[in-house]
Simulated assay, not measured.
Amino acid sequence: MSKFINSPFVQELSKITFRLYDHGWDERNGGNVSYRLTEEEVTPYEDTKKVLKTIPIDFDGKDLAGMYFLVTGTGRYFKNVIDFPERDAGLVRIADDGKSVDLLWGFNDGGRPTSEFPTHLMGHKTRLKMNPDQRVIMHCHPTNLIAMTFTQKLDEREITRILWKMQTESLVVFPEGVGILPWMVPGTTTIGEATAAKLEHFGSVIWPQHGLFASGSSIDEAFGLIETIEKAAQIWSIIQQQGGKIEQTITDKDLSDLAKAFHVTPREGYLDV
């Protein structure tokens, strides 16, 4: 049997973590990714059948018992995952009691899942209720989006409208808008619960002065959502650098027509039409 390190799942995680770093969105040990795998995807690999150790988690994951997650490690630099995936990532299975995970592969230097793993699990749990194909949670630090949280009111409707109007693609990719939390201490149950509550309504959640938490049914979908939101924020930032005066824009009527053409439904009350 092939070793799990050569699986398409580890390869995907290795590539995307480097791309997140290369975009400047995951400096140092900033950012984390979790990727839900199925039992059918894991069991063909002989080196995932033995429990290497049991790691307690600060979350009641009983509803996710038996699920497998490929997750980045705490304190690990995203630029290194592509070269050392078996050190900087691990495959875990949620234990039956939901209070710990069984490490099946990876973290071969004694590491453990990201400190944000409970928040990831809360997010997966919430999104799975709405989409059984939910697979990926990504947290990163997109530069221009973070900058917006210093200068704009943390109003979900207003920031969503700004991002929608920065490029035609935005409304199509995230018609539900973006969720926003107040500033909160990361790595806590409190921010995990608040993020999960927002994920009932949005595919992504802004953590002000910190970063973005995004979900998706695949690596590409979650990464593409982040790319699109950050690109819109970058365009807005460039407009401000050019003086902030807008001569023409995408109107609310334009956005309504766009939604009809692409068969998406904008969040109710967000368009003035």
Rank of each mutant, 00 (worst) to 15 (best):
M1L: 09
S2V: 11
K3Q: 13
K3P: 00
I5E: 12
E12L: 10
S14E: 05
K15W: 12
L20M: 13
Y21K: 06
Y21D: 09
H23E: 15
W25G: 01
E27D: 10
N29P: 06
N32P: 03
S34K: 04
Y35V: 05
E40M: 06
V42R: 09
V42I: 11
V42G: 05
D47K: 06
V51N: 06
P56S: 06
P56V: 00
K62V: 12
K62T: 14
L64R: 09
G66P: 07
L70I: 07
G75A: 07
R76K: 14
K79I: 08
G90C: 09
V92W: 07
V92E: 07
V92N: 05
R93H: 09
R93K: 15
I94C: 06
A95K: 12
G106R: 07
F107D: 01
N108T: 11
D109Q: 15
T119M: 15
P132S: 07
P132Q: 05
D133K: 14
D133C: 01
I137R: 04
T143C: 10
I146S: 02
E156S: 06
E156R: 01
R157F: 09
I159L: 14
I159P: 01
W164I: 02
W164T: 03
W164V: 03
K165Y: 00
S170Y: 09
V178I: 13
L181C: 08
T188Q: 10
T189K: 15
T190I: 13
I191P: 03
E193L: 13
K198C: 08
L199D: 09
S204F: 05
G211M: 07
L212P: 06
F213N: 06
I219F: 14
A222D: 06
A222Q: 07
I226N: 11
E227A: 01
E227F: 00
A232F: 04
W236K: 12
I238E: 09
G244F: 05
K245Q: 14
Q248K: 15
D252E: 10
K253C: 04
L258Q: 14
K260L: 13
T265W: 00
T265G: 00
T265Y: 01
P266H: 10
E268M: 11
G269L: 09
Y270E: 10
D272V: 09
